[in-house]
Design a protein around this nucleic acid. Structure first.
Lengths: 364, 364
DNA sequence: CTGAAAGCGCTTACAG
DNA sequence: CTGAAAGCGCTTACAG
């Protein structure tokens, strides 16, 4: 539509030097006479020159763009993580190309979509693909795996303690005097969710309580689907006084089902905090994932790899925050790392112990 | 790390033809002997060839990648729109590069970040930048503006009827017998929100009710900030029996403030639906934006432009859905285009009249 | 129907 | 300190 963009050759001509020299000036590094340098910079400014990253990438074989593979943006946590990754990339002047795999689908397709461009690295949120496949990708270019169920032997990961979180949530409910506690998840094949389930079961067992299969509901991935499923399950939960929802998207459905059966006195604790959790019936206590930190960590670790860091796989575990909105316990103060819960949390929040982010080195 | 990727030259060599011929086969179009074509395709398959989009882009001056500029992914509506845009792009084999501008910031920075690569087109979600600037961008390359406050004279837009929505929400509250209705927004400078405010005011006036400034709260952009602000405002709302929150992120804060002052009987209607809205106190009625349709429309309109459609600016208005969760009105059935509200909506939802998407042609 | 050649915008040894 | 030249992987007139 408008005229051709200005190119390095234009700048060089305007400055009266060769493109080689212009390139050296603009990229820094090699020694250039100050007089030439000044003329080049002036010309670049006047002409509004911006280098063409694709051309550079083609020539050098390196690309500064990174790829971000996300299962589904509609999952609030993933959107928040993506947001943090993009922000971190931008502050480094790096572009982010996105691919999605679709809820519950393997990220393999998304990764392949990005593999055709030579992105500098990959952040992969959600690890459903087979280990063999990830091995391949992880060795092809710098990669960081986020929300993996467990550390990958040879790829950097940013995780959360799903098992410990499940256990902590359940222990809290037990501490509140509950002995009949239901579990709600999406699908047992979702590995992070299954680890939360294991934590739930472990807490029960440790307290001498039975793990009763009829109190464990796998409600599916969709919001509508979960609601439907929980409607039929809740009536069977006769002695139940508390529930742990291990997946954010099932929580609304559980509350609807509870309301329909007049069971609003059930105490509910869920994985992932929601702004509205303070004003639902029942109120929602939560183990909050710090999406900001997760995303920022992932981006930073990736950049270190891109910059050439040559170390065995590193694994960072971002701490969870317990937000207790049950009416029983006293107020203990607002945790500072809580993802913006609104001041409502001031009165309603109890924070669990804080674990500093743990960085383990493994022998790759 | 591993060996060089296979290139078109590799394929050509393996097939015993020139790169010209290989290129013709793989791109279709030009006539090629069937025998050669077969050999090329086989070679490509065997070697796992994938073309390098950057190289093609450099050569042709065209790029299939599109840019997506979003104010902030943490805003649920924007994340859902982005999701739909990405999905539409993927189904066309097109990559999406993302830039964010940060909450409340102009998208100008984000656009500039993408301008250095020659993306085929741009979807810009949120229109804070000056018209002059957008004019420039919109004439440089195909662009679609989403969530603009009003149709842009010369750029394709996908909007929602903010004014009508504000009016409709308020009218519904008036129909329920309310005469003292508060308004909650973020900032008057947020143009879409201001249009909702105008609709609110218009509905009041049309009903012979006064627009009372002390019932209009501009609570700011952040969740925490809004809560804090509403805490101080709500006590002054003595006769108020209903409220319209024009911004999703202010809603949690309003409910917290209402709860703290024992005002849970206030009827609340908000812009943008939330899954938990069915189980809050008070329950949340909503004007739901159909993020899926918005995103898909934007992507499709952009592709039409990229494919060379040469028409004056087009403007699509995606209809809003009224979700009435107040206890008063009878059940009328679930609107089919509602963005997955969960089956909870079955019992709690009343849908307003449906307007088919309107496509207006303007003389750009 | 096919290939040799030029060129997209850049970087980088290589000579000077 | 500087420029001419080659080349990254592709496409596309141009000849044949």
């Amino acid at each position: 539509m408008t005229s051709r963009r200005t190119t390095l050759a234009d700048v060089a001509t305007a400055a009266g030097v060769s493109t080689s020299t212009a390139s050296r000036v603009l990229n820094g590094g090699a020694a250039v006479a100050e007089a030439s340098a000044v003329r080049v910079r002036e010309a670049a400014a006047t002409l509004g020159y911006r280098l063409n990253p694709q051309a550079r990438s083609l020539r050098t074989g390196r690309d500064t763009t990174i790829g971000l593979v996300v299962e589904d943006f509609n999952i609030a946590l993933f959107a928040r993580i993506a947001s943090a990754v993009v922000a971190a990339a931008e502050s480094r002047g790096v572009h982010v190309v996105i691919a999605t795999s679709g809820t519950g689908a393997s990220e393999q397709r998304g990764i392949e979509a990005l593999a055709s461009r030579n992105v500098a690295g990959l952040v992969v949120v959600e690890g459903r693909a087979g280990t063999a496949y990830l091995d391949h990708v992880g060795h092809t270019r710098p990669t960081v795996l986020v929300d993996a169920a467990r550390p990958h032997p040879s790829i950097d990961t940013v995780t959360v303690d799903n098992h410990g979180g499940g256990r902590q949530a359940t222990e809290r409910l037990i501490a509140h005097g509950h002995t009949s506690i239901a579990f709600v998840g999406s699908e047992p094949s979702a590995k992070t969710v299954y680890r939360r389930y294991e934590g739930y079961a472990e807490a029960l067992t440790a307290a001498g309580l039975p793990v009763r299969p009829e109190l464990v509901a796998w409600a599916g991935l969709g919001v509508a689907e979960a609601t439907e499923s929980l409607r039929t399950v809740v009536p069977g939960w006769q002695g139940v006084t508390a529930a742990f929802t291990a997946v954010e998207r099932t929580t609304a459905g559980l509350l609807v089902a509870l309301a329909e059966h007049g069971r609003q006195s059930v105490e509910v604790m869920c994985f992932d905090d929601m702004d509205l959790g303070a004003v639902t019936v029942p109120p929602l206590s939560a183990l909050a994932q710090d999406a900001d930190t997760i995303g920022r960590c992932a981006a930073e670790m990736l950049f270190e790899r891109i910059d050439g860091l040559d170390l065995p796989a590193r694994h960072v575990q971002v701490p969870l925050q317990l937000v207790d909105r049950s009416t029983a316990p006293p107020h203990v103060g607002r945790p500072t790392t809580l993802p913006e819960p609104g001041r409502a949390a001031d009165r309603l929040t109890t924070s669990g112990p804080r674990h500093p982010a743990r960085l383990r080195q493994e022998e790759g």
